[in-house]
């Protein structure tokens, strides 16, 4: 059987600048993976290709054996790095909208999480603070019963207390059969919840390892290793 996510020789060139170059990657079910890299390393490009929002220049992406398309989108729940929800809808209306769009959307789960985070479903999106809006978006994305969750910078705009909330939301709603890919540069905040980390550098994979292997072998946190690796490569 093929892996949940299988990427071969993936290359993306913007005009003449390569954003991804010949990336091979295999990811199985039941993992939480950190996609880490400095700005411009190709994180968002690889995510957008997996989600079908960008066409690769070369290479192949299979999601649970399906090429990127209608079938792959059914099993991927994607949190983009920007807001895309309609400001004039209430949270409740947004939930109805998601129920129409995704057959795996679990409204009970969404309402339960909103209640836990003290968010009023009757509030209009535009009245929410930036952090609350991010929480709502994450709740919507995590309320799908998807196989692959892809979260692009899910905690960037929220305060540290809310980050803990969000990470706990991710852990407590995590289905052991599903895989979550989290792209971020706030490594120290997330490294305890990750199984594996992938370091991207100039559009290529510089390292793919488990968090505990890094700590065991290097005697330092992933965050410390990241700072070291990228300082070296820049010289």
């Amino acid at each position: 059987m093929s892996n949940l996510l299988s990427i071969q020789g993936l290359t993306k060139v913007y005009s003449s600048t390569p954003a991804l170059y010949n990336v091979d990657l295999e990811i199985g079910s039941g993992h939480i993976i950190g996609l880490l890299g400095p700005n411009g390393s190709g994180k968002t490009t690889i995510i957008k290709i997996i989600c079908g929002l960008l066409q690769p220049t070369a290479g192949k992406v299979l999601v649970d054996g399906h090429e990127v398309g209608v079938e792959s989108k059914k099993i991927i729940s994607y949190l983009p790095d920007h807001t895309y929800l309609n400001d004039n809808m209430t949270i409740h209306e947004t939930i109805l909208y998601f129920m129409d769009f995704y057959e795996d959307f679990d409204a009970d789960r969404a309402y339960a999480m909103l209640e836990k985070l003290n968010i009023n479903p009757d509030a209009k999106m535009k009245t929410l603070s930036k952090g609350t809006k991010e929480k709502v978006q994450l709740i919507l994305v995590m309320s799908r019963r998807a196989r692959l969750y892809i979260l692009d910078e899910p905690i960037a705009g929220v305060d540290p207390a809310a980050r803990d909330y969000i990470l706990n939301t991710i852990i407590s709603n995590y289905d052991p059969e599903a895989t979550i890919i989290i792209s971020t540069h706030l490594i120290s905040d997330v490294e305890n919840v990750l199984d594996d980390v992938i370091f991207l550098q100039n559009g290529q994979i510089a390292l793919h390892s488990s968090v505990d292997d890094i700590r065991q072998n290097e005697g330092k946190s992933v965050d410390a290793l990241f700072r070291e690796v990228y300082r070296c490569l820049e010289n």
């Binding site: 706990n168 852990i171 407590s172 052991p176 305890n192 919840v193 968090v211």
Partner: peptide, 12 residues
């Protein structure tokens, strides 16, 4: 799951 949430660590 409860223990992982309590400790804020990966369930695996």
């Amino acid at each position: 799951r409860e223990l992982a949430t309590e400790a804020s660590v990966n369930p695996n």
